[in-house]
Nucleic acid binder design. Sequence first.
DNA 1: CCACTGACGAGTG
DNA 2: GCACTCGCCAGTG
Length: 111
Amino acid sequence: MSLTHDTIYALVRRIPAGRVATYGQIAALAGFPRHARQVGYALAALHDGHTDVPWHRVVNAGGAVSRRADPGGEDYQRILLEAEGVVFDEHGCLSLSRFQWRPDQYSNSES
DNA sequence: CCACTGACGAGTG
DNA sequence: GCACTCGCCAGTG
């Protein structure tokens, strides 16, 4: 079993709009808690516009948007998230405590 | 098949 | 709060 791009994309697609997940979280959900990098590399290979993967819902552990290969992509990601209701603070980060996706949150109505 | 290439995370000083 | 180290592995040419 390996942490393939396909596995990563499948998990990213499960992130609901208005919620975000961290690279490490995706890796952990896939069963590879220390493979955060693989997640980033997988998303880097996406090339937005050619996939149905909501890559913009994936942020780093600090709740900030990571650098992309394409300059300006960071702003693009932020715009997409804000359009989904995610709010960024003055540091350019978002509140993971409020916007981080939690799979368990779905089985239990909790706000 | 080998070498190079990357959207990270947590810890230490 | 910043600079650095180590751990991690699938694509692509």
